[in-house]
Design a protein around this nucleic acid. Structure first.
Length: 467
RNA sequence: GGUGGCGUAGCCAAGUGGUUAAGGCGGAGGUCUGCAAAACCUCUACUCAGCGGUUCAAAUCCGCUCGCCACCUCCA
């Protein structure tokens, strides 16, 4: 099945046509590692994770790269303040990022390259750009001359000529021919030695944009299929990547640009000054479920702003529990019969709706609706005794297929009752057997206080964690 | 000023020319249950910011008005 996906380059939803199907080569702009990533960052990373999983689900083979920006003004400053160097400073933040990624159930990428490990590639690209007449030197730094590339501004639809006439003051203190020109290689003699690299054109460090051009081309080729990031990267970052890459190779850079809208908090952009700045780690430490955060993000289409709120997070938990409850009760199905036609029909309907939703510009809200419809149908069939053991297995298998894309549908099994909880649980079971309901209810109350909710079923008593 | 986008039920959110406007949360009533939870059944937008237009037909296309937002600052 093919994927129709919005392409920022054309401004339209169009079929993704990989260069060498069934392989799709994709690149996601990753984190700048000077602190924890926040929930807004993760909206983008979750969206690209689902995109990647959806591509695989639809039959593509995906090679995925995410970069780590580990050379940048703040990193150098903070590292110097901490009397360490880049590696010493960024290593813990990279580890923290990987921890958060895992919590959000984002699959590790095939390549996770660091900028500082690819300086020679960047230097080589700058030399190619110079050879093709796209650069100039000012105060020892090397700049890209946007006037040398007529198509500059196409991705972001910026009227470059109009902007040139504008009066916006650039805060860069170097001399530039044009306010929109951007730095490829910075001469920064006032910065520590460990933040400088040798190059044929003099020591210094790379500008921000060049790393993505150099690393994406190294791992994915000079032209590749899909490049992803947050909408704020369209300009200038991605525009400049295109300029550097196409300026250097003379070939098209990326065929399909995928941009994820911003997450808002209380209908405003996140900012530290507003105090609405949430780190995934903090939310998890406060006891919020990472799967619910992920669910919340998937509930909205990736091209629409989504508002993060604790109320919304609560709704997400409730919705998620409905799905998890269904999965937990599936083993209660009995009967040796074959999968009934009713179950088969429900599964077929759900699969079709699910695939169509994903194929249509990665419509995760609609994919979730397909899941919920399957849960409704499944519950109803269970009540009516139309689900045999094999039927339950088929339903479970279907949820598992869906979950390979969404990664929120299955309740975690590793959760166990603590000894204290288990004792209360056993006590209640004994009391119930003796029909001492008062005592049984007390035990239930205590467990509830510990966040364990009991459900008595014909098959025995189940428990789950909840409020 | 330039560019892009949004406004659908109490809340979140699909749908973008044509059957009864998905789905979730919440709410109301009922069934089941020692109690409860879960689940099931029924109900919960005669209507898609407002006004006008195009069309046999519009939440969906066009225009205007109102409201909100993002980017044009190395911020996902």
């Amino acid at each position: 099945m093919t994927l129709r996906l919005h392409n920022t380059l054309s401004g339209a939803v169009e079929e993704l046509k990989p260069l060498s199907p069934p392989e799709v080569r994709m690149y996601t702009c990753g984190p700048t590692v000077y602190n924890r990533a926040h929930i807004g960052n993760f909206r983008t990373f979750v969206a690209t994770d689902v995109l990647r999983r959806a591509l695989r689900h639809l039959g593509y083979k995906v090679t995925s790269v995410m970069n780590v920006t580990d050379v940048e003004d703040r990193i150098i400053k903070f590292a110097a303040d901490a009397a360490t160097d880049i590696k010493g400073f960024t290593e813990p933040w990279i580890a923290a990022f990987e921890q958060d990624m895992a919590a959000m159930r984002i699959e590790p990428h095939d390549h996770f390259p660091r900028a500082t490990a690819h300086i020679p590639e960047m230097v080589a690209l700058i030399e190619r750009l110079t050879a093709r007449g796209h650069t100039y030197t000012a105060d020892g730094s090397i700049y890209f001359r946007i006037a040398s590339l007529p198509e500059y501004g196409r991705l972001s639809r910026l009227d470059v000529a109009g902007i040139q006439a504008g009066t916006r003051v650039d805060n860069d203190r170097y001399e530039k021919e044009n306010a929109r020109d951007f730095v490829l290689w910075k001469l920064k003699s006032d910065e520590p030695k460990w933040a400088q690299w040798d190059a044929p054109f003099g020591p210094g460090r790379p500008g921000w944009h060049i790393e993505c051009s150099a690393m994406s081309m190294k791992y994915l080729g000079e032209t590749f299929d899909l490049h992803a990031g947050g909408v704020d990267l369209i300009f200038p970052h991605h525009e400049n990547e295109i300029a550097q890459s196409q300026g250097g190779t003379g070939k098209p850079f990326v065929r399909h640009w995928f941009h994820v809208e911003h997450l808002l908090v209380d209908n405003e952009t996140m900012s530290k000054s507003k105090g609405n700045f949430y780190m995934v780690r903090d939310l998890v430490d406060q006891g919020h479920r990472p799967d619910a955060i992920r669910y919340l993000l998937l509930q909205a289409h990736y091209r629409k702003k989504v508002n993060f709120s604790f109320e919304g997070l609560g709704h997400a938990v409730a919705a998620l529990e409905r799905i998890h409850s269904f999965v937990r009760r599936l083993p209660d199905a009995s009967g040796d019969g074959p999968v009934t036609p009713e179950v088969e029909a429900a599964i077929a309907k759900a699969k079709q709706a699910f695939d169509e939703a994903l194929s249509d510009d990665l419509n995760t809200p609609e994919a979730l609706a397909a899941v919920h419809n399957l849960v409704s149908d499944g519950n109803s069939l269970l009540v009516n005794g139309l689900v045999s053991r094999s039927g339950a297995a088929a339903l479970r298998a279907t949820i598992e297929v869906f979950d390979r894309v969404l990664a929120v549908l299955l309740p975690s099994d590793e959760d166990r009752l603590s000894p204290e909880e288990q004792a209360l649980f056993d006590e209640r079971q004994d009391s119930r057997k003796r029909r001492e309901f008062q005592r049984a209810d007390e035990a239930r109350k205590k467990l509830e206080g510990l966040g364990v909710i009991l459900e008595d079923t014909p098959k025995g008593t189940r428990w789950r964690r909840g409020r």
